[in-house]
Amino acid sequence: MFKKILHVLATCLLSACVTSPTGRSQLVFMPDAQINQMGLQAFDNLKKQKPISTSSKYNQLANCIAGAITQETGGNWEIVVFEDASPNAFALPGNKIGVHTGMLTLVDNQDQLAAVIGHEIGHVLARHSNERASQEFAVSQGMGIIQAVSAPQTALGQTALGMLGLGAQYGILMPYSRTHESEADMIGVDLMAKAGFDPRQSINLWQKMEQASQGRQPLEFMSTHPSHATRIQDLEKHMPQAMGLFQQAQSQGKQPHCN
Results as ranks from 00 to 15, higher is better:
Lys254Gln: 05
Glu236Met: 05
Leu104Ser: 03
Gln71His: 12
Gly253Lys: 12
Thr105Pro: 05
Ala91Tyr: 01
Met1Pro: 13
Val116Thr: 10
Leu125Trp: 05
Gln250Leu: 13
Gln112Tyr: 02
Asp111Asn: 10
Ala68Ile: 11
Lys50Val: 10
Gln141Glu: 14
Arg132Trp: 04
Thr154Gln: 09
Gln169Lys: 13
Leu92Cys: 01
Gln153Met: 09
Gly253Met: 12
Glu210Tyr: 08
Ser202Ile: 05
Asn76Ala: 11
Ile35Gly: 03
Gln141Gly: 10
Glu120Pro: 09
Pro21Glu: 04
Ser25Leu: 15
Thr179Glu: 15
His257Gln: 15
Ile5Cys: 09
Ser55Ile: 08
Ala89Trp: 05
Ser182Glu: 03
Met209Ser: 07
Arg127Leu: 07
Arg178Ile: 04
Val124Asn: 04
Lys194Gln: 12
Ser129Val: 13
Gln135Lys: 12
His225Val: 06
Phe43Glu: 02
Met222Pro: 05
Gln135Arg: 14
Tyr170Val: 12
Ile97Phe: 01
Gly122Leu: 02
Gln26Asp: 10
Ala151Arg: 14
Arg127Gln: 10
Val8Pro: 04
Pro256Met: 09
Thr19Asp: 00
Gln252Ile: 07
Met239Val: 07
Arg127Asn: 11
Arg127His: 11
Asp185Lys: 00
Gln153Ala: 13
Val18Leu: 12
Ile187Ala: 00
Gln248Phe: 08
Gln217Asp: 14
Pro240Ile: 07
Asp44Lys: 15
Gln147Val: 13
Gln71Asp: 10
Ile52Val: 15
Ile187Cys: 00
His7Met: 10
Thr101Tyr: 01
Arg231Met: 02
Asp44Phe: 09
Ser134Val: 10
Gln26His: 12
Ala115Thr: 03
Ala62Pro: 03
Arg200Met: 00
Lys48His: 14
Pro226Asn: 01
Thr230Gly: 06
Gln248Met: 08
Glu181Asp: 05
Lys194Glu: 08
Ala212Ser: 15
Val99Ala: 02
Lys3Arg: 14
Leu161Glu: 09
Gly171His: 06
Gln26Val: 06
Leu166His: 13
Leu191Thr: 03
Glu236Gly: 03
Leu173Ala: 04
Ser223Phe: 02
Gly94Asp: 01
Ile121Trp: 00
Asn88Thr: 04
Asp32Thr: 14
Ile65Trp: 00
Asp234Leu: 08
Met30Leu: 15
His123Asp: 06
Ser20Lys: 01
Lys3His: 14
Met143Pro: 01
Gln207Asp: 14
Ala68His: 15
Gln26Glu: 13
Ser56His: 08
Gln41Arg: 10
Met186Gly: 02
Leu27Cys: 09
Asn36Cys: 12
Gln248Lys: 15
Asp198Trp: 05
Ala33Gln: 12
Thr105Gln: 13
Asn95Gly: 02
Met103Thr: 11
Gly23Glu: 07
His128Phe: 07
Glu83Arg: 06
Ile97Leu: 03
Lys237Ala: 06
Phe43Lys: 02
Gln250Met: 09
Met103Val: 12
Leu9Asp: 10
Leu245Ser: 05
Val8Arg: 15
Ala68Met: 12
Ala184Phe: 04
Met222Trp: 14
Ser140Ile: 07
Val28Ala: 13
Cys12Asn: 14
Arg127Asp: 08
Gln201Ser: 03
Gly122Lys: 01
His7Tyr: 09
Thr70Ala: 03
Met103Phe: 12
